[in-house]
């Protein structure tokens, strides 16, 4: 268990992604987002999180997916860094899972350089592939 890590798994399009649970502050339902002008297209705007104003990004746009409308399953995952927090919109949150360290592989060669920057590795679990994100780079607006 010592090398196992806990991840929150979520869906983006048809793929499954994961973020280390230690980086996650909370998961919220979709809420009103205030658009902020003069920002990149993946910045959806800002939300009110119990009195603080937080930026929210659309993770699909950020990872160059075709964007689609949000369903009722859509969630905002609040990721915390040392200096700030940021929300990211995902299609659905599936579960919290343990991944043994030996089941995590470095990102495969075929992904482009740009994508490789965002990907920390790929976790394997019961035949599922979970793409583990490098949140520092994803959140760098």
């Amino acid at each position: 268990m010592a090398d196992d890590q806990q991840f929150v798994a979520f869906r983006l399009g048809g793929e499954e992604y994961g973020v280390s649970i230690l980086q996650i502050q909370e998961i919220k339902r979709m809420t009103d987002i205030t658009r902020v002008p003069h920002t990149p297209d993946y910045v959806k705007g800002v939300i009110n999180l119990r009195g603080s104003v937080l930026p929210v990004i659309d993770l699909k746009t950020r990872l160059h997916f075709a964007s689609s409308d949000y369903t009722d399953d859509a969630r905002i995952i609040i990721v915390r860094f040392e200096e700030y927090s940021i929300g990211m919109i995902v299609d659905a949150v599936s579960e919290v899972l343990w991944l043994p360290a030996d089941q995590i592989e470095p990102s495969p060669d075929f992904v482009g350089e740009l994508e490789a920057e965002y990907i920390r590795g790929v976790g394997k679990m019961d035949g599922r592939l979970i793409i583990l994100l490098n949140m520092e780079n994803v959140a760098a607006i």
Binding site: V46, P55, S85
Partner: peptide, 9 residues
């Protein structure tokens, strides 16, 4: 608006 969105025109 935090450090990320600071300095927006």
């Amino acid at each position: 608006m935090g450090t990320l969105l600071g300095g927006i025109r």
